[in-house]
């Protein structure tokens, strides 16, 4: 287990977590390789966000070990800067008076350190991040006057401004239209080809499966982890989603391989 740190950027062993009496994660084993583009899938309430929060050190598991960069998440110190996080859009107050460039610069705040002001190099990093995601022209626009897709890019730029090695995205394309979603995934694909490790949390199997190179499916415990076509066609997945047709309403893409209970493959 000690030697694996070179290969795996994230390692979870036997992790369990519960809110009071409600089990959220049940004996999860989970690893992510450096450079992987992984979709973390599962129905609503399956523990996806909690799993991410365990890795980020926002919650502590009741049992098991979590390692990121070979360290415990609450013991990362300066290695925190190697993590980029794009939270769910709905968790953000859209009336907050903030310009896009100010929101992006926040990505540098922790790195700058307490009691210090942002320097020219920090503003430069923010500008480069905004250029990378294609919102350089929106720098002075307040958040309230951005579309959902543009706002999502602002938060991606905020994560990138800190020059991370691994990127976590929690349901990044909820409430964003299909065309915007597609170009957002192309952007992520580009980052991935440049060597970024990406973990994407979603309940939208169809859209995610066609962009990532690995999926992990969670329903309290891990029910599958591997290449999309292997995992998504499995009996476990069909059982996990049951006859719930939520996934198929998003079926704009031809790649959906999850079995529907009665009607065969869709």
């Amino acid at each position: 287990m000690v030697k694996k740190t070179e290969d795996y950027i994230i390692e979870m062993e036997n992790v369990s977590f519960s809110f009071g009496n409600l089990p959220v994660l049940d004996r999860v084993f989970f690893q992510v390789r450096r450079g992987e583009f992984l979709g973390l899938l599962g129905p609503n309430g399956s523990g996806k966000t909690t799993l991410i929060k365990c890795i980020l050190g926002l919650v502590r598991p009741d049992e098991g070990t979590v390692r990121i960069f070979g360290k415990a998440p609450w013991d990362l110190n300066d290695d925190r800067h190697r993590i980029g996080y794009v939270p769910q859009l709905i968790s953000v107050d859209l009336t907050f008076p903030l310009r896009a460039k100010e929101a992006v610069l926040m990505g540098r705040y922790a790195r700058i350190g307490m009691l210090r002001r942002p320097k020219g190099s920090d503003r430069e990093a923010a500008r480069i991040a905004m250029e990378r995601v294609g919102i350089a022209d929106l720098a002075d626009r307040p958040l309230a006057r951005l579309s959902g897709g543009q706002r999502q890019r602002v938060f991606l730029a905020r994560a990138l401004a800190n020059e991370p090695e691994i990127l976590f995205l929690d349901e990044p394309t909820t409430s964003v239209d299909p065309t915007t979603t597609e170009s957002f995934y192309e952007l992520l694909g580009g980052l991935h080809r440049e060597g970024m490790t990406i973990i994407l949390v979603s309940h939208d199997v169809g859209v995610v499966a066609s962009h990532v190179d690995g999926v992990a499916c969670l329903n309290r415990g891990l029910v599958g982890h591997g290449r999309p076509e292997e995992v998504l066609g499995s009996e476990e997945m069909a059982r996990m989603y049951g006859c719930d047709a939520v996934v198929f309403h998003h079926g704009r893409l031809p790649h959906i391989v999850v079995k529907r209970n009665d009607h065969g493959d869709s």
């Binding site: 939270p87 953000v92 926040m106 700058i112 307490m114 800190n162």
Partner: peptide, 21 residues
Amino acid sequence: LFFKELLFVTFDPEMAQVGGL
């Protein structure tokens, strides 16, 4: 003194914590 830190936790406390604040 804590202008940027207070701004960050007011806007997005979770993200601030992930960043290490």
